[in-house]
Amino acid sequence: METKKSNKGLTVLAVIGILLLYMLIQILVGSVVGGIIAAFSVDDPTDVNALTQAIMKLTPVLQLVAGVILLIVFGLWYNLGFVKKDKAEGVYESGFKKTFNVKTIVFVVTLALGIYFFTTVFAEFIAWAIPGSAELLNTLMEMSTEGNEVVGFIYIALLGPIAEELAFRGVALRSSKKAFGIVGSVILTAVMFGIMHMNPLQSLYAIPLGAAYAFVAYKFKSIVPTCIMHIINNSTAMILSYVIPGDSNIVVCIVLAVVFLAAAIFLGKDLPVFKKTEEKAEIPA
């Protein structure tokens, strides 16, 4: 019993370490590297306002650089630490092969859209409960694309989702599932995913979002479907913010959430990954 508790405690610390590493890379690139570049781009490096403005203009590019570094770090960690091991043990299953068929792709897309509209409704309630949280998130999103919308879109809609999936549904989930099983590892990684966003609104709605992604990654034994879902989620949010600026119509979002989630449940119930099978001690990537 003590050994089991110890393993769980060490696992929690390990997952927290993964979160801290992820955030540290973002901070080093955004604040340290960005600060150095900004200092050389302004006339007076002691002018705090000028430095802040320069860093804000650099934010989309700095995010892109951080995204590439995160992809490399967690991509290597995931592949060398888990995928390579599974291949050596002969238990590797290709996530691409399991995902890229018509029925599974339609399931992944409908589930992604259903979860997107569900979290949109959830976010509206959070914004109502925490005054100012929506304004803070809007400000952060504007900083992410200010001055270079194309670079900002590439990071938010593509690089960011893949890096986050590698870190949280890849390395963190694989590191925690043996100690906690499906329920504990899903909750643990979802909470860490929420903390990573570092603002009240996004952090709170990211928890159910992260739990849904973790559940899918656990069942598929792969991050391929969750990478697709995450890209769809972020791309939809970005595109709709341009096409339909302003607050979301909560009634429409509720209807769309119900329709897409119902379709996903209908499509997913017959997929092999969701059929009841005996749990194995080790789950391949």
Rank of each mutant, 00 (worst) to 15 (best):
F40I: 04
I25L: 04
K5N: 11
L10D: 03
L58K: 01
V42S: 03
S41K: 00
K4N: 07
K4H: 04
V12F: 08
I36L: 13
Y22P: 09
V42E: 10
L19S: 07
E2F: 11
V33S: 04
G34H: 08
A54T: 00
I25F: 03
G9A: 10
G30Q: 04
D43Y: 05
V42F: 02
M56N: 15
V29Y: 02
I27L: 07
L20G: 09
N7A: 07
M56L: 13
I27A: 06
N7W: 03
G35W: 03
A14F: 10
L20F: 08
I55K: 06
A39Q: 06
A14K: 14
L10N: 09
T59F: 05
K8W: 01
S6A: 14
D47I: 12
A14I: 03
A14L: 12
L19K: 07
P45N: 05
I16A: 13
V29Q: 04
I18D: 01
A50C: 12
Q53R: 14
D43F: 03
T52K: 11
A39G: 09
L20W: 00
D44M: 09
Q26L: 15
Y22R: 10
N49Q: 14
M23E: 11
T11Y: 01
V12R: 06
V32D: 06
S41V: 04
L20P: 12
N49C: 00
L19W: 07
I16W: 03
Q26V: 14
L58Y: 00
T46D: 13
E2H: 12
D44H: 02
L58T: 04
T11M: 07
N49I: 08
V12N: 13
D44V: 11
I36N: 08
M56C: 02
K57T: 12
A39D: 05
L51H: 05
V42M: 00
S6V: 14
T11I: 06
Y22L: 11
I36H: 03
Y22Q: 09
M23S: 12
S31T: 15
I18G: 05
V15T: 12
L13D: 02
T11V: 09
K4T: 12
L13S: 12
N49L: 09
K57S: 14
I36P: 08
I55M: 03
I25A: 02
T59P: 01
L19P: 00
G30M: 08
D47A: 06
L24Y: 04
D43A: 15
S31L: 12
I55G: 00
L10A: 05
Y22W: 10
D44N: 15
T11R: 00
I16N: 13
N49M: 13
V12P: 04
I25P: 00
I25W: 02
V42Y: 00
V12Y: 06
N7T: 10
V33C: 08
